[in-house]
Design a protein around this nucleic acid. Structure first.
Length: 771
DNA sequence: TAGGATTTAGTTTTT
DNA sequence: CTAAATCCTA
């Protein structure tokens, strides 16, 4: 470790701000700092000792950081052991927390497992499970995700007779989220509306929404933080419990914390003052969801005796990549200012490429990857980072065609798939029957002939008698208005109650419960034709969920519970599932890539209007945020960086010609090497601009034949394969053709490779040779 | 109430 | 362009 890193590791007591540039070994510092605290504990001085002024000073210096200490002083120092559970480490993703724990366990053995490591949300959830009753929640409250929140808000707006055309559900939710970040309750919100009509309406919706959340025993993401703060503020025994428990607190990615999170950390650290925050103001990219860079900029004001350590040596990227990153970020005005440097080699120049359109761009990327793999790179060396999830589809099409194995992080997430959410909803209603939103989701899924009408009647009855909807449904025969549907409702209630009993039984496992739900509800059968690809896919997902449940049970052993599983699931993100071992190319948004690194990075869509996005172009503040995002994206690359733009691009059905991104202009020319399919300045005289997407595609095809694709690929088009042929793929090696299916101008080949298994590949894109 | 057909709206980033 | 919402009919 370098001097600065050592200093950060050994500065144990008191507030500490570590400004850690990209790739500066921040995680190493964090891990070693925690290990150091556990090993050597909390050194404190015997202040009653009769020491000279100089010795006292030496002692103080020692307490603040590892400095040499005179023998005479040593005997007056004591070391308090610090237990792992007295350390709280807050990370940005669950995955980061898991890795932190893993590395600690590698160093310290089992002690590493007892460190409290998690995200803000999981930490708060844990505190609220213990103390939530103080705020009127049960200890198995449900955590709503954004879809649940949306459904609930829709209902609220409908019941308040607010027309969504006047006030969109989304903007109300956004406003409420902002209020919660600022720790403003519905009542306070309503007090401050003045004569702003819109605000008054939002306030009413906020209040109703919160009341219903409480009735459903549910919290949304923002509530987790806000309620944790509320708990600590109004319950002094909880506050003092956690203040005494956590001797040391560390917060990673501090630049992306919001106001509520800042208050939370401040409360927890008030007693011990041992707060260490790590962050990089240049990497703050979550302003849009309430993160305030202020937290990091004002840390020294909040904690006047704070020590500040800068980590500016980069161990990740080549000089070229780092220079480009520095050049781009230097255009921002609102920053603390630092310059990363590295002893790494200069490396290859940054490859900038102008493609015709998004398909052509994807082809270029695919080609570079296949060439690289041929030269010995692994697929997992490559990552593609884009601004919007929608950009992945062009890449996906190309990768399928050329047989490049890939994974997409984000986009349609596993836990957002309909069938998965349905099963999760079953599990959470079993866990918490008051959860009306999720009850509504499953009551007619599979179809039980229970419609909207019946449900709103039941819902009204429930609020009249002050019981939950589930209560009304399970006593449906006692209510006159429900006479007709009562048998159906009772039948549903009966299965659910059966599940609840099963869940209560001590010796039954979650996996058994899950399998029972699947079979008793006949869910799989209700999906339709089991031969169709779509249903096969869904069934595979349901099986995967079963595996996940089993895995959870194995991991948490005695501790496992339905509660625990649901909590883990609701706070899980795609990036948490990302397995860096598998040999596949990875695609994700630049946001998701935070904290990750790859040998080769592709950045498609560097065009004004895509990145920076249209909404940001006329807003200097937002441009700065986009520029920080560019900085994050560039600094993910270790060895090679490709930046791409396209002359025309089709997004959301309309085709636009975008000029290259201003961020490209900010990279000094001597760092780049540019290639282009064709000069983007002028279309050739006499050429009409393609208008429809169909024409664009045709033009791209035509143009690719003449410009983009090398001569050999042209010739390959005439190569015809038949089953039994031996072929040679540049990445997969030798294989035998199993089947051929003509598709348009191309042929889909199924090939059994000797070492890489059976794959389906499009003939024209596969770069095949005869074996 | 189910299911299909048609229209329409909404398109950034995520715990 | 896609996914969701709405409408319409059986």
């Amino acid at each position: 470790m370098n001097k600065q890193q050592q200093k950060a590791v050994f500065s144990v007591n008191g507030p500490l701000l570590v400004l850690a540039g990209a790739g500066s070994g921040k995680t190493t510092v964090l891990v070693n700092r925690i290990a150091n605290i556990i090993r050597f504990g909390n050194a404190y001085a015997d202040t009653s000792a009769n020491l000279s002024e100089a010795d006292q000073q030496a002692m103080r210096a020692y307490l603040q950081e590892e400095t040499p200490i005179p023998e005479k002083v040593r005997e007056h120092l004591a070391v308090l052991p610090c237990a792992p559970w007295q350390i709280l480490a807050i990370t940005f993703t669950n995955k980061a927390a898991g890795e932190l724990k893993q590395r600690l366990t590698d160093m310290l053995g089992n002690a590493g497992k007892d460190v409290w490591a998690g995200t803000f949300h999981s930490t708060c959830a844990r505190m609220l499970r213990k103390y939530g009753e103080q705020l009127g929640y049960s200890n198995h409250f449900t955590i709503y995700d954004s879809d649940d929140s949306r459904r609930l808000m829709k209902n609220c707006l409908r019941d308040l007779k607010i027309d969504e055309k006047v006030l969109a559900c989304k903007s109300v939710l956004g406003e409420i989220s902002h209020a919660k970040d600022s720790l403003i309750s519905p009542e306070e919100y309503l007090q401050n509306v003045g004569n702003d009509n819109r605000a008054a309406t939002i306030g009413k919706a906020y209040q109703l929404y919160q009341n219903r959340m409480k009735a459903a025993d549910a919290m949304d993401f923002d509530d987790l933080i806000a309620n944790a703060v509320k708990l600590l503020r109004q319950n002094s025994s909880a506050l003092s419990y956690y203040q005494r428990k956590f001797h040391y607190i560390m917060v990673d990615e501090y630049q992306d914390t919001n106001h509520a999170q800042y208050i939370l950390v401040k409360l927890l650290a008030q007693r011990s003052k041992n707060l260490c925050v790590v962050g990089d103001d240049d990497q703050s990219i979550y302003k849009f969801r309430g993160a305030t860079i202020e937290n990091i900029l004002s840390f020294e004001k909040t904690f006047p005796d704070a020590k500040v350590i800068r980590l500016e040596q980069n161990y990740r990227s080549t000089q070229t990549i780092l220079n480009a990153a520095n050049a781009v970020i230097s255009h921002n005005t609102e920053r603390k200012g630092k310059t990363l440097w590295t002893e790494n080699p200069v490396g290859r120049k940054i490859q900038t490429h102008t493609a015709l359109n998004e398909q052509d761009e994807a082809d270029y990327i695919g080609k570079q990857i296949l060439e690289g793999v041929e030269k010995g790179r692994k697929f997992s060396d490559y990552a593609i980072l884009y601004r919007m999830n929608t950009q992945s589809s062009a890449l996906e099409r190309n990768f399928v065609k050329s047989g490049i194995p890939y994974r997409i992080i984000g986009g349609l997430r596993f836990y957002e798939r309909k069938e998965i959410r349905d099963m999760i909803a079953y599990l959470s209603v079993i866990n918490n029957p008051s959860d009306e939103i999720r009850l509504r989701r499953i009551i007619n899924q599979p179809k039980r002939s229970i419609g909207d009408k019946t449900l709103s009647v039941a819902s009204d009855l429930a609020s009249q008698i002050g019981k939950s909807v589930f209560y009304v449904i399970s006593h449906a025969d006692e209510f006159e208005p429900l006479k007709r549907t009562a048998p159906k409702l009772l039948q549903f209630a009966k299965i659910m109650q059966g599940f609840m009993v099963l869940n209560e039984e001590k010796n039954s496992s979650l996996k058994e419960l899950y399998d029972e739900i699947l079979s008793q509800t006949g869910y799989i059968a209700s999906l339709g034709n089991p031969e169709s690809d779509e249903v096969k896919d869904r069934v595979a997902n349901l099986t995967q969920l079963g595996t996940n449940i089993q895995q959870y049970e194995e991991e948490s052993g005695e501790e496992s519970s339905l509660d625990g599983f649901l909590e883990e699931v609701s706070l899980m993100t795609d990036i948490d599932n990302y397995d860096s071992q598998a040999d596949t190319v990875v695609m994700m948004t630049m946001h998701s890539a935070k904290g990750l690194e790859f040998p080769v990075i592709f950045l498609p869509g560097f065009e004004d209007g895509v990145f920076p996005g249209v909404q940001a172009i006329y807003n200097p503040e937002q441009i700065e945020e986009e520029r920080r995002l560019a900085y994050v994206a560039i600094t993910r690359a270790r060895e090679e960086l490709y930046i791409l733009n396209a002359q025309s691009r089709t997004i959301f059905g309309s085709t636009n010609r975008n000029r290259p991104s201003r961020f490209l202009d900010e990279i000094p020319e001597e760092l780049t090497e540019h290639t282009a399919v064709r000069s983007w300045k002028q279309p050739r005289p006499g050429t009409t601009l393609p208008v429809s997407s169909k024409e664009v595609r045709a033009a791209a095809m035509e143009s690719a034949l003449h410009f983009g694709v090398p001569e050999s690929a042209h010739a390959k088009k005439s190569l015809v394969f038949k089953p039994g042929d031996t072929v040679l793929h540049r990445a997969f090696g030798k294989g035998t053709v199993l089947s051929t299916t003509p598709m348009g101008n191309d042929t889909l080949l199924e090939i059994a490779f000797e070492t890489k298994g059976t794959k389906k590949i499009m003939a024209n894109f596969a770069h095949l040779k005869r074996g």
